[in-house]
């Protein structure tokens, strides 16, 4: 029994070694990055600006001679903080509103769906930028707020659709017949059944948030005080002609992370979501 389970687990894991490895590497780097980083990512060394990769600087140096490896490690920390916060907030708001709309129906459903439609009428980045435009000096918390402002919609849609089908199932009817309060039915019986599709969406969504944060920073709208992959890529693009390694390193970090989360999301979908 135990061995069969272990074999199945191995089958699961080995099916997506690349995606999962990238995701695990990302979180390990984000967690340990600032500890193992060889330099302060803001340490200025003008004598060695834009140096090619060498033993002293494994990934070379960037603007003002900052060590790129250290900058990439600190950037992973920022991407993880923003990713976890935005996905967490979006998930909490989206799932609550979606389950509520699906279960209550009627006017509540119309209001939630209408509001979701409205938010989705704005292209994501455009809405994010418009929100950041109202803050004098955007910090990490503002970036998180701006990304969560439309991040919740997808979770709400999935939760609502799932709740609508669950509501018709016999075991939910049974809770009603037993006289459970609606809040208990939703929390104890609906929410646990939403887990699979929501986890799938959250995984792919995490990659999308990492990309969105990088994009905002690339455009110069990110949290100015933090080291960000997007800002690094922007600096690299400015010196692309003479020192292409800066843009290559920063872009590769973003692309590998997003790719890892997408692969893992697809893989989870195949396993958790039979549709």
């Amino acid at each position: 029994m135990l061995r069969a389970r272990a074999a199945r687990l191995y089958g699961w894991l080995s099916a997506s070694p690349v995606g999962l490895a990238l995701v695990v590497a990302f979180f390990v780097l984000a967690l340990l990055g600032p500890v193992v980083a060889p330099y302060d990512p803001r340490a200025i060394d003008l004598a060695h600006e834009y140096a090619a990769p060498s033993l002293r600087h494994l990934l070379g140096t960037g603007d003002n001679g900052i060590d790129l490896l250290s900058a990439v490690l600190y950037g992973a920390r920022l991407a993880a903080v923003v990713g976890v916060s935005v996905v967490g907030i979006s998930l909490a708001i989206g799932v609550s509103l979606g389950a509520l709309a699906g279960y209550a129906g009627g006017l509540t459903d119309h209001l939630v769906t209408g509001f979701a439609d409205l938010v989705q009428a704005f292209p994501a980045i455009v809405l994010n930028i418009a929100i950041l435009a109202l803050v004098a000096e955007p910090g990490v918390e503002h970036v998180i707020l701006a990304l969560a402002a439309n991040g919740w919609v997808l979770y709400a849609r999935i939760a609502r659709a799932q709740t609508l089908t669950l509501r018709e199932r016999d075991f939910i009817d049974a809770t009603r017949a037993l006289g459970f309060r609606p809040s208990r039915t939703v929390i104890r019986h609906i929410l646990p059944n939403l887990a699979a599709p929501i986890v799938v969406q959250a995984t792919a969504g995490f990659g999308a948030v990492v990309l969105a944060e990088a994009t905002l920073s690339f455009l110069g709208l990110g949290p100015g005080k933090s080291v960000s992959w997007g800002a690094l890529l922007d600096q690299g693009t400015a010196v692309l002609l003479r020192f292409p390694h800066v843009a290559l390193v920063a872009g590769a970090a973003i692309a590998a992370t997003v790719f890892g989360f997408n692969l893992t999301g697809d893989w989870l979908r195949d396993r958790l979501d039979p549709r």
């Binding site: 690339f218 890529l233 872009g251 973003i254 997408n262």
Partner: peptide
């Protein structure tokens, strides 16, 4: 095509 972010694809194409 889906995996490569356009903020990276653009600079790569220019390069």
């Amino acid at each position: 095509g889906l995996a490569i972010p356009n903020i990276w694809l653009g600079p790569l194409l220019i390069l």
